[in-house]
Amino acid sequence: MSALQRALSVLYPDQCLICRNLVDQPGALCPDCWRGVPFVQGHVCDACGAPLPGQGDGAADHCDDCLTVARPWDKGRAVMLYRDAGRRFVLALKHGDRTDLAGPAARWLTERLRPLVECDAVVVPVPVHWSRLLRRRYNQAAEIARAMGPLLGVPAVPDALTRLRATAVQDGLGIDARFANVADAIVVAGAKRSALDGRTVILVDDVMTSGATLAAATTACHDAGASRVIVGVLARAVRSP
């Protein structure tokens, strides 16, 4: 470490991503927050990454949601559950102007997805409507996707997908209403179709609840000629047991 770096570390010590307590390195969580984040481990649903009981037998097992609702994508993985410190992390990235969290989120998601990524892949985020982008100033999924491209060694195309209309907020809607809300709302931008044609698309979003938005985005990718779609989300919302 250079003298300048040592001086900066004294003036601006590294802080936990969530609670701001001091940590040993940048982009890290303190021990308490690390234990508080419900990272997904062990046997998971092959379609959404939700945790499953048992060790699995190598088969493509699925959670109850993914057995009930057809998933148009091929496989899916999640980093954490959308609760407790995991929920606070996601909300800070999404609504708290904490774009600095996109880098750690991308590293975690890359670890989950690397075994599924092929050399012909391209990373694409779920889009937000321009009116919402004006208010929020950034698309958190796009920030994660931009950071994931170099980590995976594949191109990232943050503007590949477009929302044709400002859909209603999904919170509080039933599953049928959620799917109806986003039906035909997402398309591939005309100039970007060639970037997806014949490729495996790594479709990135911050949270998966019903999967309606991811399904609409997946359909748009297939319509543009994508050969496969792999879904990667920072957090998976699951029902409490």
Rank of each mutant, 00 (worst) to 15 (best):
163 R>I: 00
50 A>G: 14
16 C>T: 00
137 R>H: 15
14 D>C: 03
225 G>L: 07
13 P>S: 07
232 G>Q: 01
210 S>V: 06
67 L>A: 00
240 S>Y: 10
93 L>T: 08
240 S>E: 12
210 S>R: 02
59 A>P: 00
4 L>Y: 06
90 V>N: 11
218 T>Q: 08
36 G>E: 15
33 C>R: 09
42 G>D: 02
7 A>D: 02
221 C>Q: 04
170 Q>T: 03
130 W>K: 12
54 G>W: 10
16 C>S: 01
71 R>W: 03
166 A>M: 05
143 E>D: 14
84 D>Q: 07
104 P>N: 10
38 P>E: 02
97 D>Y: 13
9 S>M: 08
25 Q>S: 15
2 S>Y: 03
71 R>N: 06
60 A>W: 04
83 R>L: 07
174 G>I: 08
140 Q>M: 09
24 D>L: 15
126 V>D: 05
186 I>L: 04
208 M>W: 05
80 M>I: 04
124 V>R: 05
205 D>S: 15
29 L>N: 08
160 A>Q: 10
220 A>G: 10
189 A>Y: 10
196 L>D: 02
27 G>I: 01
181 N>W: 10
91 L>H: 15
72 P>A: 05
153 G>L: 15
78 A>K: 03
24 D>R: 15
228 R>E: 14
145 A>V: 07
91 L>E: 15
114 R>F: 05
31 P>Y: 13
23 V>R: 02
235 A>M: 08
139 N>D: 09
67 L>Y: 02
198 G>V: 03
90 V>T: 06
94 K>M: 15
206 D>E: 08
126 V>I: 13
76 G>Q: 03
81 L>V: 00
50 A>L: 08
46 D>G: 13
44 V>Q: 10
148 M>P: 06
187 V>S: 02
187 V>T: 11
113 L>Y: 09
22 L>Q: 12
227 S>Y: 04
132 R>M: 01
92 A>P: 05
116 L>R: 00
34 W>H: 15
117 V>H: 02
136 R>P: 13
198 G>D: 01
107 R>S: 12
138 Y>F: 15
148 M>G: 09
102 A>V: 02
199 R>Y: 06
222 H>P: 03
2 S>E: 06
86 G>C: 03
28 A>H: 14
180 A>M: 10
51 P>H: 08
160 A>N: 10
57 D>R: 02
82 Y>R: 01
84 D>I: 00
74 D>V: 06
161 L>V: 08
104 P>D: 00
10 V>K: 03
30 C>Y: 12
159 D>W: 07
81 L>E: 12
113 L>Q: 06
1 M>N: 11
170 Q>R: 00
240 S>K: 14
160 A>R: 12
12 Y>K: 03
77 R>C: 02
42 G>Y: 01
173 L>K: 11
88 R>D: 15
124 V>E: 01
218 T>G: 08
124 V>C: 01
155 P>K: 00
215 A>M: 05
85 A>M: 09
106 A>G: 09
222 H>S: 08
110 T>Q: 08
109 L>C: 04
